[in-house]
Amino acid sequence: MVSGTGVRLLAGAMIVACMTLVGPSAPKGTLFARPLPAGAPEDVVPNRVMTWNICNPCNESGQNIGRAADIATYAPQVIGLQEACVRDVERIRDHLEYQYGLVYQVEYGSVLRSWSRCGGLPWRPGGFGQAILSAAPMTDHVSVEYPDGGSEDRGYMAVTTTVDGRPTRVFNTHLAQRRQEAVRAEQADVLAAAVARHDRAIVLGDFNAVPDAPELAEMWAVAADADPECRSGATGTCEVTTDWYSKFDYIFLRDIAPAGHGVHLTRYSDHNMFHADVDLTDPT
């Protein structure tokens, strides 16, 4: 039998051993943080934005830890997530802060309460829709449900936040599922009208349509994709963003210059991450 004093000494030794393994208490010293690739940013990149449909349901083991690591690898100033459950976003945000030292504000554009997708109690299901994470404060948040969501309620959200040191209106959307072209056309018209009211805007989202799809015509009329080689009539030069080799994910820029972009494979979704660096320097 171990005496009370012996138990306390043993417990103290275990705590010291654990602290030795874990290291300092700073966020980047946690035991469970997945190491980032060499060259990953140490802090958020102030002119970088990202869009990512995180897939629901996908149920990959450890998916929120993995999602946070994938985001931290590129450390955007602003991230637009689609198919996002509030509980998942909360966990991703916490992992980003406590494992990688990246602190984000969050706003939600939930348009659906779904127990089957997001869990929770049947009479209190989790919110499902879009979310925006920003390293800077966000203001003037709106969440708009499209008049016709198609087979599932859909909408857009918008906030004003800081990108590349300047206040910018940022939208995030998810248009109707495939084979619902007429519904998407109506949704894109609603979104384009809202974007057109701003001199400068960034639109993130999963549009469920390839670049030359007729339903995206109004969006192309008010903004350009962050990939300068990708235009409405040139699908062959657009990088694919899905596991089925289509470009469905866009970063539309209105009166903002692109300064680089990347499409990144991930095991945690059937959509790739798409990030863009932008230049908001006013012309001289």
Rank of each mutant, 00 (worst) to 15 (best):
A33W: 03
A40Q: 03
D153C: 04
L265K: 10
G4V: 14
E83Q: 09
A131Y: 06
A38Y: 09
H261S: 05
G149C: 06
R113D: 09
T5K: 09
L121S: 08
A209F: 08
A234F: 13
C55M: 14
A188W: 12
Q77W: 09
L10F: 10
G127I: 02
E239M: 08
T242W: 06
C58F: 15
A192T: 01
M19Y: 10
G39N: 07
L9E: 15
R8T: 07
E181G: 11
G205N: 01
G205Q: 01
M19C: 11
N59T: 14
Y100L: 02
P125L: 07
P283Y: 12
R197E: 15
L31A: 08
Y146S: 06
D140S: 12
R8W: 12
R48L: 08
K247R: 15
V142N: 12
N47E: 14
D212W: 04
N208F: 04
Y245A: 15
V142H: 14
E229P: 00
H261A: 05
D206T: 05
D282W: 08
A259L: 05
G109A: 07
D249A: 01
I251R: 00
S3M: 10
N272H: 15
P37G: 03
D249I: 01
G260D: 05
D70G: 03
S269T: 07
A217D: 12
I256D: 02
L216I: 02
E152P: 03
C58P: 09
V144Q: 09
L265P: 07
G260Y: 12
Q187H: 15
A193G: 10
A221L: 03
I202V: 14
A17P: 04
A17W: 09
N53E: 15
H198T: 01
D88F: 08
T51A: 12
P41K: 00
